[in-house]
């Protein structure tokens, strides 16, 4: 087989794979504007009634408020914890560092359904389940490793002499942190914040178990799915998609920044 034919076949294969990955996403967007109750082809007429339905639904609004609250708090906590861990890994060597990093990074390898059950049992035991805060706590555990990863990659790029140079010029460790490390890591902090927010915004298994009556948007979708199956799911899904993708793009943009832009003189 010639190289060109192989290349062409691989491109076709890649195309098919992307079709497989994106067809459910496109389906949800297209059918959210389709008038038929059961979505199939040929398409019915264009409509906004599903958006109207969710817009008028107080449950959707309250879930959206909970989701925003949960994801903002989660992103803040996870970014903070992720930064602390990344900085410790960057700056210090110590005994049991392997165990320390394992403790910090393992949560994503535990299936969500198991985390959900364990969290439910534990938070009930502590008497703090069934609140929006319970979801924040659980989501922070799940999201902090991602924040750590992103921030650690950024700290990798710092000239190791910069922090020493700050001390050398009279900065205490705290001032060096504030004036050198944090400004340098800022793009990664923003990136980590957006990404963890997006992860929290989409997570449903753990939230479903520990949220109680404080449903987040994905939990609402899950419960709607168990009953009716009409395209209002798609309308909500499209909104969630737009929110997440915005966050991801912001995260991506900041992740790519080299952070060398001149700052305006104070």
């Amino acid at each position: 087989m010639s190289d060109r034919l192989i290349k062409w076949l691989l491109w076709c294969y890649l195309g098919l794979l992307l079709v497989f990955v994106f067809s459910p996403i496109l389906t949800s967007v297209i059918f959210s504007f389709n008038s038929d109750r059961f979505p199939t082809i040929p398409l019915g007429s264009f409509t906004l009634k599903w958006y109207q339905t969710i817009f008028d639904d107080p449950d959707v609004w309250s879930a959206a408020r909970t989701s925003i609250f949960v994801s903002l708090c989660t992103a803040t906590l996870a970014t903070f914890i992720g930064f602390c861990t990344a900085y410790t890994d960057y700056r210090y060597g110590f005994r049991f560092k392997g165990a320390y990093l394992a403790l910090a990074l393992l949560p994503p390898t535990i299936p969500l359904i198991i985390m959900a059950l364990a969290m439910l049992a534990w938070l009930s035991k502590l008497g703090i389940s069934g609140r929006a805060w319970s979801v924040v706590i659980a989501h922070t555990v799940l999201c902090a490793p991602f924040a750590m990863g992103i921030i650690r990659l950024r700290l990798q790029q710092i000239d190791p002499d910069l922090e020493s140079a700050a001390w050398n010029l009279g900065a205490s460790e705290w001032s060096a942190m504030k004036t050198i490390i944090v400004p340098f890591a800022r793009p990664a902090l923003i990136s980590a914040f957006c990404l963890t927010m997006a992860v929290s915004f989409d997570e449903f298994a753990v939230a479903w178990f520990v949220a109680g009556l404080n449903k987040t948007i994905p939990v609402l979708i899950l419960e709607v799915l168990q009953g009716t199956t009409d395209p209002q799911i798609y309308a909500i899904g499209t909104f969630v998609f737009l929110t997440s993708i915005t966050l991801v793009i912001i995260a991506q943009v900041f992740f790519m920044t080299r952070g060398r832009k001149p700052t305006a003189p104070a």
């Binding site: 000239d159 002499d161 910069l162 020493s164 140079a165 700050a166 001390w167 050398n168 010029l169 009279g170 900065a171 205490s172 460790e173 001032s175 004036t179 050198i180 400004p183 340098f184 952070g259 060398r260 832009k261 001149p262 700052t263 003189p265 104070a266």
Partner: peptide, 29 residues
């Protein structure tokens, strides 16, 4: 501690703070 000494250094890598401009670098100490 390094910050308690009056022994400033010129680094091989120069270690200029990339997100500060020229005068902000100079006035850092």
């Amino acid at each position: 501690k390094p910050s308690e000494r009056e022994t400033p250094m010129v680094w091989q890598s120069l270690a200029l703070f990339p997100f500060l401009n020229v005068i902000e670098n100079v006035e850092y100490g």
